[in-house]
Design a protein around this nucleic acid. Structure first.
Lengths: 66, 66
DNA sequence: ACATAATGTAATGTTTATTTTACATTAACG
DNA sequence: CGTTAATGTAAAATAAACATTACATTATGT
């Protein structure tokens, strides 16, 4: 799965730590998500999408291996 | 988090096992998701939403405790 | 160049998702 | 009523998410 969290963060001028605090996770969790080190839970995806005002599908996309 | 997987399954006339096979998880995983026993990964949410032809937000919704 | 903020990354630990097997209950149908 | 499909549920094991601490690297501003 891919995601455009980094881009959305840039648009909104959020630091990884800003975003982490806003959605209630650690900064490393954000960092790892951006680096595709793991797949976040649906709760996190919903929170992030809500925060950025975009549908989940616009920020998180399935790739072939999914 | 709440979800309407059971309703979507009824609309499409899918059994839990049908859905499980289509998205590549065990039947118990579907059952547990419907019973809100755990939060699925974003990959699963995307697959289920895609299969049912609806946005993730229409099938999975944050609740207060999230 | 220096100081500081932001990011990358790694180790270790805890919690939670997911599988597998198995059995019990319920619904549907002949 | 008996049979079979569908669902609920539970225990044990494995995999993966997420936290915490800590440090190294990169960017930014003065």
């Amino acid at each position: 799965m891919k995601n455009s969290i980094k881009v959305e963060r840039a648009i909104h001028n959020f630091t990884q730590e800003d975003l982490a605090k806003k959605i209630g996770v650690s900064r490393q969790t954000i960092n790892a998500m951006e680096a595709n080190k793991y797949v976040p839970s649906t709760v996190l995806a919903l929170k992030i999408a809500k925060l950025f005002g975009k549908p989940v599908e616009e920020i998180f996309q399935l790739s072939e291996e999914d």
